[in-house]
Design a binder for these strands. Structure first.
Lengths: 258, 258
DNA sequence: GAGTGTGAACTTATTCACAGCT
DNA sequence: AGCTGTGAATAAGTTCACACTC
């Protein structure tokens, strides 16, 4: 997240904590499901369970939006759906462009949840001329040379990058120059953007690595903590010995080629 | 994240903060890039820039792993690659299964970064009999009835769910029953799992909604904060009036059908 | 009675700033 | 002189617990 703006805007702004903002879509999804089942009201306890958080957190989160509940009763489902939608900006229409229509890009374009909530795919863009014109998710892929025109004509402010890592920064620069100010990045690279542009990243392999960390911990705990199991070295190529280090445990294995 | 275990294990454990763990893969990626360019050492400042964080945070993060740097010089790239890999558990091999080989599942299976770092796709599994046997990313899709056998035979502890939302919880339950203790969930649902099982979710539409929130803020700020612009209502269907509410601004529009 | 809304306590994360090593 | 490692200060996020309202 590369939000510039350190100082808050002059007007006394109701600052909704970032952590809360990140949970609003979760609440919204749970509420939408209730709405479809025509449930009229819901308590913080019930809604929290549906959203997978605890009720105190949920109430605190909602308190930043205003007092939308009724004591002794709970929350009006439809009313809350509306208020959260509005807060998230989903009562308006957001045209987005997707750049990089490979395997992943195509899959994302086909993914329904995309278009569902206020988001509309304005264009699919790729740099491969052989892709251009091919229909993906019911719309023809456009050539990257037209990126600037497409962004301008559609008033696009949100871009999705699903290119290979090598192309991502370049695409990002063009998007930003064309006026895009929010980017969802699926390429495994750190993007650098000017102040005022938001970047969120979704990274497959990072998520797996975090899971592996915890998984490893579990394995260690089973044997009574501080496991003796020496890590199975998978790839010890090209690691310098470097003596005198003081890590909490495990120096590099001796079998290591310099 | 549904980590059970409230109490720390008996042995005085070096508790690495969750926020730090989440950044280690980032550092690792930056270090790997340096390693490929045969850069021998790097300062916290340089590495932080490459990873997109600030240097104080990076040094603090590394301090939880041990003292792996050299004052006045910086960090030995190869040595750090090894230490972080070990800490993340990437020096061992993690067989994973992917369940749900639709558009997204197939795209993920084809995604290289998956297999690269210690992770090995042991099986692709789908519930659609017509998919079974078809090669995806060079391996035949297997039928969901074999899930338990596959998990057991391969010692799988990490599962990836890329099914439609409706099937996700059921698949999750089967994975957990079969012995999987870490799950990466791409389905737009909250999964409930027993204590001791970790779930991480990747959710497209949530990320977009967070971006929309910030995007809306920017639009408001341009006109001098506390924008007068009335939110364009896209879908005001079925919202109850509910008078007497006290949100910070904007009650529901009057045009609303009860 | 039931359940929200919220100060206050607590926990986790980030940033500062500088002592200490090379 | 340069750069790490880390206590101390600050900020952000979570949980507690209960007054208050319906």
């Amino acid at each position: 997240m590369a939000t510039g703006r350190t100082h808050r805007p002059a007007t006394r702004s109701r600052g909704i904590p970032e952590a809360t903002v990140a949970r609003l879509p979760l609440y919204l999804r749970a509420l939408t499901a209730l709405s479809e089942r025509s449930v009229p009201t819901v308590s913080s306890e019930e809604l929290a369970a549906a959203a997978g958080v605890n009720s105190a957190k949920l109430r605190k989160d909602f308190s930043y939006l205003g007092s939308y509940g009724t004591r002794g009763v709970g929350y009006d489902v439809e009313y809350l759906v509306y208020q959260i939608s509005r807060e998230l900006g989903l009562t308006q229409d957001w045209p987005i462009v997707m750049v990089g229509i490979g395997n992943l890009g195509a899959a994302l374009a086909n993914y329904g949840g995309f278009a569902s909530r206020g988001f509309r795919v304005a264009a699919l863009i790729d740099a491969d001329p052989s892709m251009v014109g091919k229909p993906v998710a019911g719309m023809p892929v456009q050539f990257i040379d037209d990126l600037e025109r497409i962004v301008a004509e559609n008033g696009v402010s949100i871009g999705v990058i699903a290119t290979p890592a090598g192309a991502a920064q370049q695409v990002c620069d063009r998007l930003v120059a064309a006026g895009v100010t929010s980017i969802l990045n699926f390429a495994p690279t750190v993007l650098s953007v000017p102040d005022g542009v938001d970047v969120r990243k979704v990274d497959l392999s990072i998520e797996l690595q975090i899971l592996a960390f915890h998984e490893q911990r579990k394995a260690g705990e089973e044997t009574g903590g501080e496991a003796i199991l020496p890590p199975v070295v998978r790839d010890a190529a090209a690691v310098t010995p470097a003596e005198g280090r003081k890590g909490p445990d495990g120096d590099m294995p001796a079998v290591m080629p310099a």
